[in-house]
Design a binder for these strands. Structure first.
Lengths: 253, 253
DNA sequence: CCACTATGTGCGATTATCGCACGATTCGCA
DNA sequence: TGCGAATCGTGCGATAATCGCACATAGTGG
């Protein structure tokens, strides 16, 4: 049928795995069948394979991801030297700014946290950690990532944007969204507030990149944290020094 | 050939992915061929598939894991409510003890960090973060996990233990290792020092479990942090209250 | 009691996969 | 420059693995 160099069975198996990316703790066989659009018998056999390979495990009334996927992610993180070089820098910046600081990259049409640090004073968390996926269009991280991605990606993101707003401040029109990304590219940083979470604001700066994929450094805080005059400049300053300290990610090997 | 309910191609593809778990940043096609033992042409086609599905990306002279695996791990973590409930508890405990605190589980024959927090004062890090894999036999985390796993797992771990010691203090004989695990089971906590990293010591306590797989709470510090009399008791006390606060993991859904 | 949904699995046809083989290319080293 | 080793790309025929329909069972709720 399709390509000679494309293992269809593998792709379907990965498709099944991807059904769990949404964070649903448990999925039943019929649910996976619906989400993937594959044949019921095929899904069953693929799931059995995934269980035997240790990527899924069966709970009562459903399947869930196994710790195996963490080990895989660990391989990714170690390859990037996240534990040794990134984490200390983020921690330091988080304390200095008294804000949450994160390193993020892009997976398809989402921004994804690669590492993250919060200051000791932080009492409340938004619940985003390593592997959390955020929208590209309505967050500072996402817009900075888009500004450093190809035009095609921006088009795809706009085409795929959800018609439901996250908050009352969510921008839904294409033109202003394009403009926001363009602004981020021109001024070298992105800023967004209230569009994704009411009361939250974020700033993001670029950080070189690994191959095609851009990385960015971002910080999140409650909106009023940026009210103070000069605060934004200070945040940008710290983030940029932070970016220099981390350097070209994954480069030294 | 083999089972009717086992997708061989999918298993081989996962095998290829698993080659990257060791943390090697880049792998060339011939290297993957060697590690996996598969046919060269097969490896090539599987890798092409993995690239097209977004799990691998091609760098100069090699393949590496793509951010996609992070998104997958994010699904696992969200399913466990790690971001919202676990992380704040760990952070609090880390500050209270002024030590690194981690939640870990078992993947095959390794302990793997599910989440981790370090106190603000921490200037030096061992470089272990989410997804890091630690040996089961020579760490406190690992021994507590073994104490809560089946006897078969312990046997497998002993059979697979590396003949090279990590440090001069690494216990290599089977009998004392079995005894250490048994001790951990009896006294309800595990302690280890110097066996994995010279100068480092760790304590671990159980935390209920999700299905078959046990979870444990662990803390790490330099050996002399435990010299002070009564310190161990205090650490155990905090860790156990921490375990209660997290509760039966993944249970409330 | 029936309709609906979930589940397990046999089996024949299809076709995707395998893995050898041949050829091109690059690179290091003499 | 020229040679050998290693990497790489990819036809192609045979094989066997996969597909997906179909039948059968069980649990649930109206």
């Amino acid at each position: 049928m399709s390509d000679r160099d494309f293992a269809l069975t593998l792709a379907k198996g990965l498709e099944v795995l991807a059904c769990f990316e949404t964070g649903t703790p448990q999925l039943t066989l019929p649910e996976i069948t619906r989400r993937s659009g594959l044949d019921r018998a095929v899904v069953r056999r693929l799931c059995l394979t995934l269980v035997r390979c240790g990527y899924l495990e069966e709970g009562e009334g459903g399947l869930r991801l196994a710790p195996r996927v963490l080990t895989l992610a660990g391989g990714f993180l170690r390859g990037l030297q996240v534990g040794r070089v990134v984490q200390p820098v983020l921690r330091h910046a988080a304390e200095e700014l008294d804000m949450e600081v994160a390193l993020a990259t892009r997976d398809r049409l989402h921004a994804v946290y690669v590492d993250r640090a919060a200051p000791a004073s932080a009492r409340v968390t938004l619940g985003f950690g390593i592997g959390s996926a955020l929208p590209l269009l309505h967050t500072a991280v996402g817009r900075m990532l888009l500004a450093r991605s190809s035009a095609e990606v921006l088009d795809q993101a706009l085409a795929a944007r959800s018609p439901q707003p996250y908050t009352e401040a969510t921008e839904l029109d294409a033109a202003p969204l394009r403009a926001a990304v363009e602004t981020a590219r021109e001024q070298g940083y992105a800023f967004a507030r209230d569009e994704f979470e009411l009361g939250a604001a974020g700033v993001a700066v670029p950080l070189g990149g690994l191959g095609q994929v851009p990385f960015v450094l971002a910080t999140t805080a409650s909106v009023n944290a940026f009210d103070e005059s000069g605060r934004l400049e200070r945040v940008l300053d710290v983030l940029r020094r932070c970016a220099l300290a981390i350097g070209r990610i994954g480069a030294p090997r």
